[in-house]
């Protein structure tokens, strides 16, 4: 961390922004390549080696496209809705330490924009706001498919927020910390949550991962944009760069959600054997470890996306309220019991 918060925000914030935006763009190329391989195709090949320049060409195309606003749309809301999803997701990334190092026997977070001491709550609060722009867009479009998609998005977002909070409570209770750095520091000292809490830690990780998928509207939870039922979901009426921003925000959300899950359950940038190395080496190794874990989760999300079917809207609600919420409560209760009995 650079001591001056303004300078730290500028330097680290700029770096995080640049890395995330580049990865977000590359993710769309990577998904096309990956899905093509799964289906025995070759994917993009024309622009650059392996077609890797395709997302940049896509962005240029989207910016040039005509920007249409439907005649009967709510012009103001229609115009401002696409601004929020990317902004909110990048805000989420502000409290994630992307690296770390040992100093005086304590794990410190590094490469983070702000070390908020209620970081976990901050993450949950911003994820909860993600339904706003979707609803705004769905309503303002004045299109029945957009509106249905917005209704589904709100219902899904509100429902899956609850098991998500419950899953996030497990590492919070176990570590006694509310900041993302604090949770990671505890894991560096006592072991990663997935392994430290037998069964419960792993189940909480799976729950958090599933609900993050739902919050980011990825298969099997992507009913708000189910193209076979709802044309293009909330972005049906959007053209050009506005629809591009919605699509980019979904890649970014998946990426940031993977990073948050890595921090909460997989020890963030921590790997065994770092203690004793010079600080710069620790920061470099932990940065690589953090991105390795994050991208591994990211890959698995797209693996699921391209090999799993989509749930029906009512099945999705049933899964949440009948199984995930009671399951989450059980996980929280068992963690609390384990902590108060001194087993953790």
């Amino acid at each position: 961390m650079i001591p001056n918060p303004w300078l730290n925000g500028l330097v680290v914030g700029g770096a995080v922004l640049a890395v995330l935006m580049t990865l977000g763009a590359l993710a769309s190329w990577w998904e096309r390549k990956f899905s093509a391989r799964l289906q025995g195709r070759v994917g993009t090949t024309i622009l650059g080696p392996w077609g890797i320049l395709q997302p940049f060409a896509d962005a240029a195309k989207m910016i040039q496209k005509e920007d249409l606003i439907p005649r009967d749309a709510d012009r103001v809301l229609f115009y401002i809705a696409p601004l929020f999803p990317v902004t909110l997701v990048l805000g989420l990334a502000a409290v994630i330490p992307f690296a770390g190092y040992w100093a005086d026997g304590v794990w410190h977070g590094a490469a983070m924009v702000a070390d908020v001491d209620v970081g976990v709550l901050f993450v949950l609060a911003l994820s909860g706001l993600m339904v706003f722009p979707l609803w705004m867009a769905g309503w303002a479009s004045n299109n029945k498919y957009s509106l249905l998609a917005a209704m589904r998005a709100v219902a899904q977002g509100v429902s899956y927020e609850i098991p998500m909070v419950l899953a996030a409570l497990v590492p919070v209770i176990a570590s006694g910390k509310l900041s993302v750095t604090g949770v990671i520091a505890w894991q560096a000292e006592h072991g990663w949550i997935v392994a430290r809490l037998p069964v419960v830690g792993f189940l909480a990780f799976v729950l958090f991962y599933l609900t993050s998928l739902a919050e980011a509207n990825r298969i099997p939870f992507d009913i708000p944009e189910a193209e076979s039922e709802l044309v293009g979901g909330v972005i049906t009426e959007y053209t050009g760069i506005k629809s591009g921003l919605f699509i980019l925000s979904e890649y970014l959300h998946t990426l940031v959600a993977s990073a948050v899950a890595t921090g909460m359950f997989l020890g963030g940038g921590h790997v065994p054997g770092l203690a004793g190395l010079p600080i710069w080496a620790q920061v470099v190794i932990s940065l690589a470890a953090m991105w390795f874990k994050t991208l591994a989760l990211f890959v698995s999300i797209y693996w699921i996306r391209w090999s799993w079917y989509r749930f029906r809207s009512d099945q999705l609600m049933e899964l949440c309220w009948r199984y995930l919420v009671p399951g989450g409560l059980g996980l929280v209760a068992s963690t609390a019991v384990a902590v108060s009995l001194g087993w953790v």
Binding site: V116, F122, L124, A125, G128, W135, L178
Partner: peptide, 24 residues
């Protein structure tokens, strides 16, 4: 900051979502 996060989760997130349903 604690109060701020709770304000967003409970009021901005929760109340508004319920109001949206009410309106719709």
């Amino acid at each position: 900051p604690f109060l701020a996060s709770i304000q967003v989760i409970l009021y901005t997130g929760g109340v508004i979502t319920m109001m949206l349903f009410g309106v719709m």
